[in-house]
């Protein structure tokens, strides 16, 4: 149940999932391991402030990367009492057995606009080749600085792809390379050497 100090539980009017969103929810059973990363969240537990020390509420990254969708679908499932579940991370759907796959139809799908205490919120996804290729929040409140901040968290940019490594021409590299051992095998070391020999 909502707790007084929790902005996330104040999203009182979750959108009713329409057909495309139901499609989205369908593949979730294929990735139980991901969902287990975040058992408390699936129980509808409140999101706690990070600085309050919520180790037990550790969020699975795969789930959170779809947070914009997940939060609403999850809210919807709670209020409707349906068995709708959080969609799995799109990038990992290929691990499912084909027979279990209920593919998503290609296209741009808008969730229903929903009014929460900060205003109108709507999420949209783009499906291509049966996978989510983009997600956005076409509508979200922006009239109050703090609300904006909170809603930006509630609707983060969804990065659907797994990490794509690039070998780019860079001037410097940020990374945890604070030992001489790790430095010796780092790209930064190679950059430094290229300068030294030029």
């Amino acid at each position: 149940m909502p707790t007084p100090n929790d902005p996330y539980d104040d999203i009182v009017t979750p959108p009713v999932p329409d057909e495309p969103l139901s499609e989205l929810a369908a593949p979730s059973a294929a990735r139980p391991s991901e969902l287990e990363l975040n058992p408390s969240r699936h129980n509808g537990s409140k999101r706690r402030h990070a600085a309050k020390g919520s180790r037990s509420a550790a969020l699975g990254l795969a789930v959170v990367s779809t947070l914009g969708m997940a939060a609403y679908l999850h809210q919807a499932s709670q209020s409707s009492g349906s068995a709708a579940t959080i969609p799995s991370a799109p990038a990992t759907t290929s691990t499912k057995k084909p027979s279990e796959t209920k593919s998503m139809a290609d296209g741009v799908w808008n969730g229903d606009a929903s009014t929460n205490r900060w205003g109108l919120v709507q999420v949209a996804i783009t499906v291509s080749g049966g996978k989510i290729t983009a997600a956005s929040a076409p509508l979200y409140p922006s009239d109050d600085n703090r609300s904006l901040s909170i809603n930006r968290i509630a609707i983060p940019k969804l990065v659907q792809s797994t990490l794509t490594a690039q070998n780019a021409n860079v001037n410097s590299v940020s990374g945890a390379t604070s030992t001489s051992e790790s430095y010796q095998t780092s790209l930064q070391s190679a950059i430094d050497q290229s300068h030294a020999s030029s």
């Binding site: 990490l163 794509t164 490594a165 690039q166 070998n167 780019a168 021409n169 860079v170 001037n171 410097s172 590299v173 940020s174 990374g175 945890a176 390379t177 790790s182 095998t185 780092s186 790209l187 190679a190």
Partner: peptide
């Protein structure tokens, strides 16, 4: 501007973002 790579966690010589 400076082009700064963010080290890829599993590939030491690759950048996860530039």
């Amino acid at each position: 501007p400076w082009r700064i790579g963010i080290r890829h966690p599993s590939e030491p010589l690759a950048s996860a973002a530039v």
